[in-house]
Design a protein around this nucleic acid. Structure first.
Length: 258
DNA sequence: ATGTCCTCTCTTAGAGGA
């Protein structure tokens, strides 16, 4: 079974790309981020016609997350990350799918740093870490998938020295990611491809994709129950080369069926 | 500083976000 995460950068503007990718690769469960669509403008019919059930949490203009499944309708558990009643961004949705707990997240970008946006990012990260601790301790297999807006190590950036002051790579951000992973989570792509240069995002600027000036910022973290079933992991980087494509590429894991 | 692409609006150009 294949579980994927994909920051689509506008689910309606990107619909042909999304549908083509779903058709060509047939992932069983998909986490989407950056829908950039209000709740009522999610293309539910097209998604259903492609063979997927979906739940989503939209927002006008920005953010927005969804979980798609062709192995049973996602049973929604929550659509807000706990810990801040004032937080109105739609950046988290969680469901049980096929007896797997799926957390789909879109962590704040945080630029410019330092500043209020960076503070919001670190605060969100802390709330995620608190919530993840509870999920980690569950008996069920758990996947925390999404756009973390973090390059965990220098290996995950085409030119680390250029990014040290950026919110995606500052020491505080990397430390926050490490604190989360150190609860015991498996960084699935890195586990199966240690030492390998893998990117999931290439800027639209200056032909970043053509130059392979990329970043690895989309991650699938697994608890031990899920890690045991991990078979393969990768990035559909060719999708980044399609017309009218997102700046992210779909990132996925393959797991053993039980 | 810049580059590009998305969405929305006091809309067909500019702002905000990434």
């Amino acid at each position: 079974m294949k579980i994927a995460t994909y920051n689509v950068n506008g689910v309606n503007g990107r619909l042909p790309v999304l549908l083509r990718w779903l058709k060509e690769t047939s992932p069983h469960i998909v986490c989407l981020q950056e829908l950039k669509a209000p709740q009522e403008k999610f293309p539910e019919k097209d998604i259903n016609d492609a063979g997927y059930d979906a739940i989503w949490h939209g927002q006008k203009s920005w953010n927005g997350v969804a979980i798609l499944s062709r192995v049973g309708k996602p049973e929604e558990l929550r659509r807000v990350l706990p810990g801040d009643a004032e937080d109105t961004h739609s950046r988290y949705i969680e469901a049980t799918v096929h007896n797997i707990l799926i957390g789909c997240l879109y962590l704040p970008n945080g630029n410019p740093a330092p500043g209020p946006k960076f503070d919001y990012k670190l605060g969100w990260f802390e709330r995620l870490t608190v919530h993840a601790k509870k999920l980690f301790e569950m008996k069920q297999p758990v996947v925390l998938a999404g756009d973390y807006n973090v390059m965990p190590t220098e290996l995950d950036v085409y030119k680390p020295e250029r990014w040290v002051n950026d919110a995606l790579f500052r020491p505080e951000t990397r430390a926050a990611f490490k604190k989360l992973v150190d609860q015991g989570w498996t960084d699935s792509l890195r586990k199966l491809h240690p030492g390998e240069k893998i990117y999931t995002f290439w800027d639209y600027f200056r032909d970043a994709y053509g130059r392979d000036a990329g970043l690895r910022i989309d991650h699938l973290l697994l608890n031990p129950k899920m890690d045991k079933r991990l078979i393969a992991a990768g990035v559909d980087r060719n999708v980044r080369g399609w017309e009218k494509t997102s700046d992210h590429a779909p990132t996925w894991i393959e797991i053993k069926d039980e």
